[in-house]
Design a protein around this nucleic acid. Sequence first.
DNA 1: GCAAATAAGAAACCAAAAGTTTCTTATTTT
DNA 2: AAAATAAGAAACTTTTGGTTTCTTATTTGC
Lengths: 197, 197
Amino acid sequence: MSNSQHPDKLKNRRRGKELEAAILQAVREELTEQGYSNLTMDGVAERAGTSKAVLYRRWANRAEIVLAAIRERVPLPLEEVPDYGNLRDDVCGVLRSMNQNNIEVMIKAFYGLVTEIGAMPLASLLFPQGRHNRTMTIVLQRAVDRGEVSAEAVTPRMLTLPADLARHELMLYNKPMSEQTIANLVDEVFLPLVLKR
Amino acid sequence: MSNSQHPDKLKNRRRGKELEAAILQAVREELTEQGYSNLTMDGVAERAGTSKAVLYRRWANRAEIVLAAIRERVPLPLEEVPDYGNLRDDVCGVLRSMNQNNIEVMIKAFYGLVTEIGAMPLASLLFPQGRHNRTMTIVLQRAVDRGEVSAEAVTPRMLTLPADLARHELMLYNKPMSEQTIANLVDEVFLPLVLKR
DNA sequence: GCAAATAAGAAACCAAAAGTTTCTTATTTT
DNA sequence: AAAATAAGAAACTTTTGGTTTCTTATTTGC
C-alpha cells in the first residue's frame, strides 16, 4: 500500500470565510435543484464537502442557513440609476432589474422561509421595497425635470406601483417576467397614470 | 365496576361526510394555531378525535389534506354580483370580498403548499383569477352600460388589475386589506385608468 | 333480525431528516 | 514547539410523515 492514499480525499481543510462561502454556495445549488422542502442539511453538508456539525456551529437551523445563502445574493442598491432619456425606458429598466439575480431561487426560498418563519421582515429583505422606492424617486424626479410628468402626479402609490405589479407577477408565476409583461405593465398601467397629457 | 364506563370516551363512531368535515375543521384550526410548518398529522388526528390511519385513508399526504381543508373555504362564485349603482362601489365590493373567508389561514396554507408542491395551479385555486375575471367582466360591462366607461377601455389588463393589486397586498402583508387601502387602489389606480373623462 | 361487508380507531412500526454530542486531527496562533 | 482553535467523521436522539395490523362499531343486504 502506497502511503499517498486517498488521492481525492484532500486533507486540505478549509476554514473561516472560505468554508462559509462554499457552504452557502452549496445551499443555493441544493435550493435550485431540490427546492426548499427537499433541501436537507445532510445534502448541503455533503455537497459542500463538510459535515453537519460544521453547519450547526454557524447557523441555528435550516431556515437560518437558507436565509444567509439568499441574503448574500440580494442585489446591492444601484449607485447610479441608469438614465435612458425617457420615463418609459427608465421604469422598464427598474422592472428588468427585478428579474435578475436568480429570481427563481429567491422566490423558492421566499415561500419556504415565510412558511417556516412566518415573518414579513423577510419580504422587505427579499423584495426590498425601500430600495425600489429610492430608485423610483430618482426616476420620477427626472421625468418631472424633463417635463414628462407633473410634480403632483408623484404620489407614494405611483412610487411603488410598478414594483408592486412586478412583484405580484414574480410571486404568482414564479419565473422572470417576459419583456411583453414588463411593457404591458408600464404602457397600460403606469404611464397613463403619471404622464402629462 | 359499572358497565357504563368511559363517560367521556364515546363509542359513537362518526363516519363518512360527518367525520370528514370534522377532520378538515381540525386541519383549519391547527393551521391557524400552529401554522403550516408546525401542523402535524398526529396533531390533526388528535384534535379531530380520530387516528392517523383515518386521515391517510382519505388523503395521500399532508399537502393534500391541507389543500382539501382550504378548498372547502374558497368562496363560491357570486351568483349575483351586487350592483351598487356605480363602478367605484362595485369594484370596492369585489376587493372587499377578497378580504373575507379567513384570508390569513388561506395565505398561511398557500405559502406552505407552494413550498411543498411548488406548483401554480394552486394560485388559481386559492386566488381564483377566473372568478374575479368573470365578476369584473360583469362589473365593467355595467359601467359601460351606465356610460361611466367606454367599451375600448375594457382590456384584459383592466379586468385583472384590481384583484392583482389586492392579491399583492394580501400576500405581502398577510392580513386583510384596510378600507383605506382598498379605496386607494380603486381611486388612485383603477378608476383613473378606465373612467371616461 | 342477523350475517357479512365496511370503515373507524388504536397502536406498533419504519424511514427520513433535523438537530446534538463526542472524538480525532489538521491548522493556526503564540 | 506547544497550546488553542476549529474541521470533519460518525454515532446518536427526537420528531414526524407515512404504513401496517388488528379489533370492533356501524351499516348494508338478505
